[in-house]
Design a protein around this nucleic acid. Structure first.
Lengths: 333, 333
DNA sequence: AGAATAGCTGTAAACGTTTGCACTTTTTAG
DNA sequence: CTAAAAAGTGCAAACGTTTACAGCTATTCT
């Protein structure tokens, strides 16, 4: 179906060299005499020869393609991570195959298998949850994987993230110092590693240390309306300070509180734990755990390039610094 | 570097058939006897055979991969389009290679060429601008292209979009009927086809028809702070109603107005022309030209699948219905 | 000058599939 | 029951590269 493309043979014939030499020129191999190189280059330019990446992939067993596994394209948290990944990928001349697994037709392990079939040179995994089958799929292959913005239970995989536990504790402390005593944790997916291993323990430990009782953990609050609708429950439970893992949900709670005639931060303080642009756009602006999302993506991709080239990587579990950005949804005294 | 994979030969040997037969089984070719098929399938499952998509691509000249060209991953407008594309791609079992061209290291035509080298079966182009080199690059190939959420000057390429001209006129009319007379147009990129051929003409014609003078067109207002900073100028120019093409910029104008102690919509009405989730999240919520972004993406991808299979496509220029969603940033009398 | 070495180029075998063609076996029809 | 048609299978040639390996040609060294 495709227009007949120019192949390496055409170039070889025109330049009166073998295809091997053309291949060497294309790949910047130094063992080519200057005038031969020039002659070949001239023909390449004249014919607009472009190597067929699929054939290159088959012959060289490297596709210069990396796979991205992401839960939701329209979640700015992942979009901002992706941007960092994309920039570094471009720098190192990798293409990106993106696989969204939000759609429940596509399970994590299927997504991984699909990418491996395409012979990607590496994978960046951004999903918050890492089910057992996904772990198995990764273990069956030599293709390197890096987790970005998440961690796995046993630190088996390289990852780039922040210290969620410390960040949350700091956030809780901020609200505590503002005099808030009925603190709650609002989670999107309660089963992610980050939540079960970091955020929930941090919350529980904080509550215990400060003798604040069991507290309240709300789950499955994923979008704006979830947050909006949750507010009445928060009111009922007398909650006066929340950490929210979904950025848009935090906005939902905020809006709902305001619509109910309440004052933020006086009646309730809100801290968003996975801040995106949105947190700073709304009014009152949300106090946020600002993760360096772009950097997390960039560092993860950089690490992946090293792994793909069998270069030494000194630190497999990277933690980047976060910032607790105080805005108007907490009082600033 | 890669762990030795199971090839079609291994399966053939174990199942005591030729590789051709295995290939037929894998591809669901009907000309295989039931018991042969079962035998082969058993071996495939036992060995966990997975076809190498790169080799398939080379042999069949179809990669079941489509390229996506998008200006900015973190712009929800494109993210929502992408989601529609992604869902349909999954349905038809295509993978997606995404290329962001925001980064100025990557020009449109280079992005296209890169995708073509990877032998994608088709391309969906979402960039707002379609430079001449990009057009040339597309014309050099047989690979089908569909424009999503944009159009080209001469309607040379299939596209899926809305009637921007009509939508804008309707939006202007809404503000006009609210008594606003100093209407302005706030553009992100003034050189896109949609803007030069649709939005600007619509604006100019409206102003002329209603004898409102030349009006004001502001350009290069692309992000939240651009919008925020623009407001003082709008005030200076006495603008009392704006259409804004960048969603976050619209929010910036809104926030800036409110911070300046103004009333929206009383002092200024704001309509966002490329609404995303954000428009409905902020307070006051923004009146918006709600484009069916998900559907535009989905329809574009569906059209592309047809083109890739040489199926007949009856309508090459598809216009989907939009909705002028009245919210709080315009008065509703 | 001759030998050793380095630089350059070509040959041909991979890489793992698909697919046209030919051949054999089975089914169908008369 | 036989001829013709259909179904099932295998062979081998693509697909367009990369890359050992070998060989040839300069260059360097003694």
């Amino acid at each position: 179906m495709r227009k007949q493309e120019i192949t390496i043979y055409d170039v070889a014939r025109e330049a009166k060299v073998s295809m091997a030499t053309v291949s060497r020129v294309v790949n910047g191999n130094t063992n080519v005499r200057k005038d031969t190189r020039d002659r070949v280059m001239k023909v390449i330019n004249r014919l607009h020869y472009q190597p067929n990446a699929v054939a290159q992939g088959l012959a060289s067993k490297r596709t210069t393609t990396v796979g991205l596994i992401v839960p939701d394209l329209t979640n700015l948290y992942f979009a901002e991570l992706s941007k960092g990944i994309d920039d570094i990928a471009l720098l190192y001349k990798y293409n990106i195959i993106i696989t969204s697994i939000e759609n429940r037709l596509m399970r994590e392990d299927q997504a991984i298998q699909g990418l491996l079939n395409k012979q990607v040179d590496g994978v960046i995994y951004m999903s918050d949850s890492l089910p057992e089958e996904a772990v198995e799929a990764f273990k069956r292959t030599d293709t390197p994987v890096v987790l970005a913005g998440t961690k796995d239970n046993h630190l088996e995989f390289p990852s780039v993230a922040i210290d969620y536990q410390k960040a949350d504790t700091e956030a809780l402390n901020l609200m505590y110092n503002d005099g808030k005593r009925n603190l709650a944790l609002v989670l999107d997916n309660p089963e992610t590693v980050v939540n079960t291993e970091n955020r929930i323990p941090a919350y529980q430990q904080f509550m215990k240390e400060h003798k604040l009782g069991k507290g309240h953990i709300y789950s499955n609050i994923k979008d704006h309306s979830d947050g909006y609708n949750l507010y009445s429950q928060l009111q009922k439970d007398g909650v006066d300070g929340v950490i929210v893992t979904s950025d848009v949900s935090a906005v939902g709670i905020l809006t709902s509180a305001i619509d109910a005639g309440k004052n933020v931060p006086k009646d309730i303080e809100i801290i968003t734990a996975n801040a995106t642009q949105i947190a700073s756009i709304v009014r009152p602006a949300l106090t946020a755990i600002r993760q360096p999302l772009y950097d997390i993506g960039a560092v993860a991709m950089r690490m992946l390039t090293k792994l793909m080239n069998n270069e030494k990587v000194d630190e497999m579990q990277i933690e980047l610094p976060y910032e607790l950005l105080k805005k108007q949804s907490t009082s600033n005294n």
